[in-house]
C-alpha cells in the first residue's frame, strides 16, 4: 500500500550517530521521499523502514526517543539544525536542508539520538520538587491558593523536563556540577504553592549547596530555548533573592525556619 503521495522531492537529513554509550560518533546522510506535513519524527520513521544511506549503503535503523507526539512529554528532544527542541513539533517544511540531527550532548548519549536525562530526574528528587501531604493522621485541607497566583504558577508547571534548557546552558555539562535551569524553576513553583511553601527552607538549602543556584552564569540561553516559554531567568533571579534572605536567616540565626 502506498504511504506517500509521490511528489518526487527528496529530503536530505544528516544524523550524528553513535552505537554505544561513550563510543565513537559518525555522521550518516540520508535522502528520503517528502510527504506533505512531515515532521522530523516521521522522517526518522521513514529511515527506520528503509535504513539505507544516501549513497546506497545499508545501515542500522536510527534510535531515538518519543512518546506523546504533541510537545508535552519532552522525550523526543534533540538538537535540530543546531537548536535543541522537540522533534515532534519540528516540521520539515520549516527547516533548512540538509537537516542536521544531533543528540543533546550535555547528557550522556545512550545511542544515536537517545540521551539519558536521569540527571534532571535526580535533580528533581534532590530539590524535593513535590508537595508533601502525608502525615500519620488526616492533615485535612491545605491553605487555599489565590487564583491569580495559581495562574502564573501554572506557567512554571508547564515544564516537561525535556532538557532543552540544560542543552542550551553553557554551565551545564558533564564537566560541571550545575543542577541547571529546569530544576531551579521547579523550586520556585513548589515554594510558591501554599502547602509546598511549608518546606521551602529545605528546597532552598538544597539549591544553596554545591552545583546549585549560584552556578548560574546569566547567559540567559535557557529562557530563549524553552519550548514552553517558562520565565526561567526570572525564576532564577527570584530564587537568588530568596537565597540571599535565607543566607542571612541561616547566619544570624532566625528561630523560625519558614517565614
Amino acid at each position: 500500500m502506498p504511504t506517500t503521495a509521490n511528489t518526487g522531492r527528496m529530503v536530505k537529513i544528516e544524523i550524528l550517530r553513535q552505537d554505544t554509550e561513550g563510543g565513537q560518533s559518525r555522521t550518516e546522510k540520508f535522502s528520503i521521499p517528502y510527504r506533505h506535513g512531515m515532521n522530523v519524527i516521521s522522517a526518522l520513521m521513514e529511515i527506520q523502514k528503509n535504513p539505507v544511506t544516501e549513497d546506497g549503503k545499508k545501515t542500522t535503523p536510527v534510535a531515538w526517543d518519543m512518546n506523546c507526539l504533541e510537545e508535552v512529554c519532552g522525550a523526543c528532544s534533540m538538537v535540530i539544525n543546531g537548536r535543541p527542541r522537540q522533534s515532534c513539533s519540528a516540521l520539515i517544511d520549516q527547516l533548512t536542508e540538509p537537516i542536521r540531527l544531533e543528540p543533546m550532548k550535555t547528557f550522556p548519549v545512550v545511542r544515536d539520538l537517545q540521551v539519558d536525562r536521569s540527571r534532571m530526574f535526580n535533580a528533581l528528587k534532590k530539590v524535593k520538587a513535590w508537595v508533601p501531604i502525608d502525615g500519620t493522621y488526616d492533615l485535612g485541607e491545605g491553605p487555599r491558593m489565590p487564583e491569580r497566583k495559581r495562574q502564573w504558577a501554572y506557567e512554571l508547571s508547564k515544564c516537561m523536563t525535556c532538557g532543552v534548557c540544560m542543552e542550551a546552558c553553557p554551565n551545564v555539562s558533564e564537566k560541571a556540577s550545575f543542577i541547571g535551569p529546569a530544576p531551579l524553576s521547579q523550586v520556585r513553583l513548589f515554594n510558591t504553592h501554599p502547602t509546598g511553601a511549608m518546606n521551602k527552607d529545605e528546597r532552598l538549602a538544597q539549591i544553596m549547596g554545591d552545583g546549585g543556584l549560584a552556578n548560574c552564569g546569566n547567559s540567559q540561553n535557557c529562557v530563549e530555548a524553552c519550548p514552553k516559554g517558562i520565565p526561567l531567568t526570572t525564576s532564577i533571579a527570584s530564587l537568588n533573592r530568596a537565597a540571599t534572605v535565607q543566607m542571612f536567616k541561616n547566619f544570624f540565626g532566625s528561630d523560625h525556619m519558614v517565614d
Partner: peptide, 12 residues
C-alpha cells in the same frame, strides 16, 4: 574554564 561556550548556536 568550567563553561562550555555555545555562541555559535545561541548568538544572543
Amino acid at each position: 574554564f568550567t563553561a562550555t561556550l555555545n555562541n555559535k548556536r545561541f548568538s544572543t
